[in-house]
Design a protein around this nucleic acid. Sequence first.
DNA 1: TCTAACATGACGATGCTT
DNA 2: AAGCATCGTCATGTTAGA
Length: 621
Amino acid sequence: MDPQSIRPDKGKQIMIIEDQDSSWPDKGKQIMITKDSEVHSPVSYEEDWDTDDELEMQFFQAFDDQGVAYEHDSPVDCFDHASSTGSSSYNPNKVDHFMSMGFSEKMVVQAIKENGEDNDEAILNSLLTYSVLENSPGEDISSSSKSKSPVDINEDFLDGFSDSDSDCGDAEGSGRNSDDPKEKTIALMVDMGYNLEDVLISLQRCGHDASVEELADYISAAEVAKVADATEFPDRIRTVQRFQAEKKRKIPQLSSQKPKKRPEKPLVRKFSKQMVGFGLPGCPPVVSHRYLPDEAVGPPYFYYENVALTPVGVWEHISRFLYDIQPEFVDSIHFSAAARKRGYIHNLPIMNRKPLLPIPPKTIHEAIPDTATWWPSWDTRTKLNCLLTCIGSAQLTERIRNKVKSGHPSDDDIKFVIEQCKKWNLVWVGKNRVAVLEPEDMEMLLGFPKCYTRGVSRTDRYKALGNSFQIDTVAYHLSVLKPMYPNGMNVLSLFSGIGGAEIALHKLGIPLNNVVSVEISSVNRKIVNQWWEETEQKGRLIHVADVRKINNSTIDGWIDELNGFDLVIGGSPCNNLAGGNRRTRDGLEGEHSCLFYEYYRILDYVRTAMKRRAAASCRFD
DNA sequence: TCTAACATGACGATGCTT
DNA sequence: AAGCATCGTCATGTTAGA
């Protein structure tokens, strides 16, 4: 494929990753790399795809059925509870509410003091900011409002940053005072919900110096192995072998022409009618265990997203590239007042997920209360349809007004109005008057902070938001990372858009240590950049414009400089997959949607490179 | 007055659910 | 078999700024 033909703004020279031999910018700076460079194509791939045997995850099946006991928590019981002592001068319920989200009483009182008791959103934003500051040694909550240059802040932070996950015994909520790292690790993992016996066995197998992350992976792997019975296990081996063999075959296709069409497997899209994925907050899990091929187990974790309703065969194809992992199809209607049917392929643990708090409104009237006054009884909608990138026309709303202004619309008129309202997500904003959603409404429905996209054109806001994650949905899936990475994460965010992944992690209270954000739209990069500064992030943000310019040496450079990635996350363009596209719904080989292969290419190289690095490190030791 | 950015409105097919 | 939803594209018109 011709790289220049892929992007709509071809011809424009935007931001391109800098030359390979140039040094990485200093720690603590927000890096906007704008230097032009040559297109590194075709991308060279490693010849040897064999995984390192030493690093293959060893499964064991020594657990009995009581070995792992995961209970699904109620939505209210989110994260670690700090002891609730109440506050002398503020509403105890309010203080408890925010403490139940895992913030300390000191933080909560400070946040209420700064914002007043009534502004929950502002309080929450302050608390999240404090959480970031708290990860920066020497920072005092009370000084959070003082503006500090990004450079200073980040240098402070990175100087004090420990790259040892074993240090996470200091994590909030663990409540242990032992100085023994092993005991700290055990205590933390038990706090995380792991069975003590599992933790002890995993320590024995992984070594007493193993990090929490390694132990968690080991237990997850054991869990997989435990469930695999004698008849299914050979199938799993065959699946992995097939994938490895197929991978060797298919890679050359990426650097030449379009991948060859092969007969697809039978439908993998076994989503329930309700699209609840592996389970919803407050409900018993639909799926409590699943198989992951050895190659897909463990960090760096990955999370891939795209529209659920693709042309037939697309998800089967995507799944085959992403380690044969079955997609999890979820409609965000269960997290929000608006639908958003999406498929997610990831290798995250699926037990002990926690929803973001506060739980967002789930009906139109709760989400946009002003509309209730004007809502006619014959419009029975309680939920909105998917938030798209474009909006209904003013002519249409005027036409609707004319049809209903008499007060007694005919059945045909009602049918027309309902049809159009559903199609364009129109809401009643005045007497006999409908209107499109405001960008602020969309931000709220998608879980973004209010006015998050303010500052760019209205059209760009709709487009950016229509292309974004639903934060509560994604955060629910990512929430399992919170106890695993108390010291923060390094994130490779591909097709970042307006930073939905970053917002989700931030809202979960997971510090963002280093974020490489790859996004072609300068408008979107600007939005993420503004948020990064406004929330006083302590980590490093690296912007890259074009995902196709990232080659293996670029990735190696990041892995060396940033000490690897913990998460590779992104949703590749859906333009050629989405049902709304009447002209170029060409599937995964479409002009934009073919960038999925870039996600796969980069993810696979990151995982391979990090395994190689870990193996080298082991040999060195 | 010119240009670029922005806004508007017309344009069905596909595939799942009922 | 009918109903329904769908991270969209593009030509053209309008507006803002130099």
